[in-house]
Design a protein around this nucleic acid. Structure first.
Length: 209
DNA sequence: GTAAGGATGCGCT
DNA sequence: GCGCATCCTTACG
């Protein structure tokens, strides 16, 4: 298994229904350039879909603001936001221009340049380096300076490239993690997708009734 | 093993 | 000012 940082997923990959993109991102490689020679890489194992004005859990449910306007832009760009006063979260924008939607990358299996990840996440086991949306950004050193980065551009320091095929038999879904009451019925949508038996998943518990 | 609460800063009302 | 698409530490079985 080797990562080819030039096998970039094209914009057409993201210009599809968000749930399809969320499913197909499982097994893909998230790749970040550390410097001229060094790349860090990890296989995506857990995602969540956030889609449109009707999804009350979607940041864009209340309309376009300075914070979420990337979600209204063209697909294939990174939406990175800061939350809980300390965590960054990384999303890939999906669907057509002006339709706000994105896939939250929640967990990944470290594959390339684990040294850098261990430095940024001292004291953690390897399986925990990228296990959670905040952890994933911490482990890969992704902050708000990555907001709006084009994930499909050959010069970008952050991109997603072709990875491994994950069979449907290995994929499971659940409701999304961490949504509060204000999301209404949206919080029960089964829009979290993950590789069922991966040891690299987040510890997040899906929203319950 | 699980559960509860605190940390923390930004976006939005 | 309030609440958050979270994570970590602490407490207790």
């Amino acid at each position: 298994m080797s990562i080819d940082p030039t096998a970039i997923l094209p914009r057409s990959f993201y210009d599809r229904p968000t749930l399809v993109v969320a499913r197909e991102l499982l097994g893909a490689y998230l790749v970040k350039r550390e410097n001229a020679e060094t790349w860090s890489g990890a296989m995506i194992v857990e995602t969540e879909a956030y889609r449109g004005r009707d999804d009350k859990a979607c940041h864009a449910a209340g309309g376009k603001t300075a914070r979420n306007e990337v979600m209204f832009g063209p697909p294939g760009h990174a939406y990175v936001y800061f939350t809980y006063g300390m965590h960054h979260c990384l999303n890939a924008v999906t669907e057509a221009l002006e339709f706000p939607a994105a896939v939250l990358l929640r967990a990944a299996q470290p594959l390339l340049n684990l040294e850098s990840m261990r430095e940024r996440r001292t004291g953690r086991k390897d399986r925990e380096l990228l296990a959670g949306p905040g952890c994933l950004c911490a482990g890969l050193g992704i902050d708000r300076s990555f907001n709006t980065v084009d994930l499909t551009h050959p010069d970008s320091r952050l991109r997603i490239v072709r990875g491994q095929r994950v069979p449907n038999s290995a994929v499971d879904t659940s409701s999304r993690v961490g949504l509060s009451k204000h999301s209404g019925d949206s919080r029960f949508l089964p829009w979290r997708t993950f590789v069922r038996d991966s040891p690299y998943l987040s510890r997040g518990r899906p929203t319950r009734q």
